[in-house]
Structures are given as structure tokens and as C-alpha cells.
Nucleic acid binder design. Sequence first.
DNA 1: CGTGTAAGGAATTCTGACACG
DNA 2: CGTGTAAGGAATTCTGACACG
Lengths: 101, 101
Amino acid sequence: MALSLSYKDKKVISIGITSELTGLSERQIRYYEERKLVFPDRSKGGTRKYSFADVERLVDVANKMEDGMQTFEIRKEEMKKSDIRDKMLRGQLNAAFKIRK
Amino acid sequence: MALSLSYKDKKVISIGITSELTGLSERQIRYYEERKLVFPDRSKGGTRKYSFADVERLVDVANKMEDGMQTFEIRKEEMKKSDIRDKMLRGQLNAAFKIRK
DNA sequence: CGTGTAAGGAATTCTGACACG
DNA sequence: CGTGTAAGGAATTCTGACACG
């Protein structure tokens, strides 16, 4: 791990607890992973480990599913978001670089 | 649950992960519970669940053990702390009450 | 497409006890 | 006192598949 992450991002929660926290079934949670909507870590033995950020993510996904959105649409939306973030970050870095020049 | 607790206080971490996070053996963690130094929740099935606060607590305990302190001394120290907190809280409440009077 | 379920197996955790010291 | 360990059992999780739709 490069950075020491805050509680919110530490992957320490089992799927059972994650299920309780989100109200989703384990089946749903595993399926959303299959559809690339969440990315839990794995223990050496292979059990999934989620963060509180993942839990929030899953609740968000659940809401969108309720609104009739499909998994691939939700994924696209997320990809767009991180794309925007990437561009903004690059913009910031560029600006900083110019200033220092 | 009366209050909605923050991430730090939610009991969602299994003993295995807690062991990794603290560097303590599961045996040690269970023993410190026996000695009333940590108070994990339990799942319906009986498995222990710790919070990040518990993890910090355990690291603290571990440090004191290294300093040669015994479990009952650590517990006494903690009781003193919470006792002080209680008194301060009572003082606060009393003061507030007098003001409003 | 999204989710429930039964199936068989593996990983995780639990308790009580013996051991050492 | 504090901790390791083997023991037997129970709870938890995993994957791949069949089902419905």
C-alpha cells in the first residue's frame, strides 16, 4: 500500500456484514462485483473484504437499480465521473506546472 | 442502536482482520476481552465484531503490555479515565442546569 | 438481466483445555 | 499471568450451476 488510508477506505468488512449494512443480499453484492461496480479486496483464503466507501457505493448502486437503471449504465456513469476527475487533476497539475515555470 | 455511529465506532471487523490490523494474535485479542479490556459485538452466530476504535484500543493495550503493565492495571487506568469523563460530564450538566435556572 | 437457491467444499471462528512458567 | 497450540464443531464464505423471466 502506498498511502495509509483512512477508516473509510480500509477494506476490512466481510460480505455478511456488508450485506447487513447495505440491505443487499450477498448474491446481489457478488453480482455487482461481477458487473464491475465494486472492487473488494480478498483475504489469502479468498474471502471478500469491503470498505465503508464500498458500502456507500453499494447503497448508491442499489438506489440506481431501484430507479430502473441497469448495471452497465451505472458503470458507464461511474467511468464518466472518474474520467472527469482525471481531467481536472491533470488540469490542476498543468496549471501548477506553468506557475512554477 | 440509539445513535448513528461514525465509521470509527461501528463494530464490523472480524477477529482475523483485527489481528492483522493490530499485529496481535487472536489468542491475545480474546484474552484481552476476557480481562475486560475490549468489548466486541457478536454476530448471531457468535463471531466477534470489532470497530476501528477497538483496533486502536488494542494497539494501546499492546503498547502498555510491552511496557510491562499487567491487564488489571490497564483496566484500572481505563476505569479511572471513564470515571473522570463521567464526573466532567456531570459537572457540565450541572453547570448548564444552574445557568438555566 | 438480475437474483434466488441448493450443493459441496474450503476458510474462518468458537470454546474449553493442557502446557509453560 | 499471558500466550501458544491441538481438537472438534459450528458459522461464514466461495464458486459454478440451474431456474425464472
